[in-house]
C-alpha cells in the first residue's frame, strides 16, 4: 500500500500533500489532551501492523488497520497515520518522503470515512448491528484505500480499471482479515472500555 518515490507525477504528489496537510490540521485541532495516549497507541499499532504480511499468490499484502484507527480516532487518524507512515519511510524505506502526503491521504481518508459511517453504529445497543458495522468498517477502509491508490496510479498512465482490479484483488484477503480483526476488537471494547469507542461528540454530551 506504500507508493514508492518517483512513480507519481508532481501534481498528484502536491494534491496528496494538500489533502494530508488539511487532514493533519483538522486532526490536530480536534485532538483532545486526554485522547493523546490513545492516538499514540493506535499510531504504534499502525506502524507495526504493516510488517505483518499475508503472502497470497505471487504478491503479498500487509495489514493496515486503517479502519480500526479511523473508527476509534476520527480525524485524529490523520496525525496517527502520518506519524506511522513517516517512521516507516525513515526506518524501513517503505514508501518515501516525497510520497508521504499522497500515502497519508490514501490511507487516512478511508479511515475518517469509516469513522463517520460506523462510529455511532458501533455504540448501538444491538450487538449484532454494532459488530456488523465494525466488520464492514475494517473491510471498507481497505477497499477504499485500494481504489484511491488506483486513482493515484491512473495519472502515471496505468488504466484505472486495470490497476484498480489488480490492487483490489490483491487486497481482498486483507479486507476480510481486517474486517474480522475490527469485529473482535470492537466486540472487546464494547464490553471492557466502551468509552474508547465514544466519539468526541457523544462524550461531551454525556459529561
Amino acid at each position: 500500500m506504500h507508493i514508492s518515490e518517483g512513480v507519481l507525477s508532481a501534481q498528484v504528489l502536491i494534491a496528496g500533500g494538500a489533502v494530508a496537510v488539511g487532514g493533519l490540521a483538522t486532526g490536530l485541532k480536534r485532538l483532545e489532551y486526554e485522547r493523546m495516549p490513545q492516538v499514540a497507541l493506535l499510531s504504534s499499532a499502525f506502524f507495526v501492523a504493516s510488517l505483518i504480511h499475508i503472502p497470497i499468490g505471487p504478491s503479498s499484502v500487509h495489514l493496515m488497520l486503517n479502519g480500526l484507527v479511523g473508527l476509534l480516532l476520527g480525524w485524529a487518524a490523520f496525525p496517527a497515520i502520518f506519524v506511522g507512515l513517516t517512521l516507516q519511510a525513515l526506518l524501513f524505506q517503505f514508501g518515501g518522503i516525497t510520497t508521504l502526503g499522497i500515502n497519508t491521504a490514501n490511507v487516512a481518508l478511508p479511515a475518517v470515512t469509516g469513522y463517520y459511517l460506523f462510529n455511532r453504529t458501533c455504540l448501538s445497543s444491538s450487538t449484532y448491528l454494532a459488530l456488523g458495522a465494525a466488520f464492514v468498517c475494517g473491510f471498507l477502509a481497505i477497499l477504499l484505500s485500494a481504489l484511491l491508490i488506483a486513482v493515484s496510479l491512473m495519472t502515471t498512465g496505468e488504466h484505472f480499471i486495470e490497476a484498480a482490479w489488480t490492487i483490489v484483488l490483491a487486497h481482498i484477503p486483507i479486507m476480510f482479515i481486517e474486517g474480522v480483526l475490527t469485529f473482535f476488537l470492537v466486540g472487546f471494547l464494547r464490553k471492557a472500555k466502551p468509552e474508547i469507542l465514544g466519539s468526541l461528540y457523544e462524550r461531551k454530551k454525556t459529561i
Partner: peptide, 10 residues
C-alpha cells in the same frame, strides 16, 4: 511474519 514475504519495497 518475519519469515514471510515483504512487498512494500524493492
Amino acid at each position: 511474519s518475519f519469515t514471510h514475504t515483504f512487498a512494500h519495497k524493492v
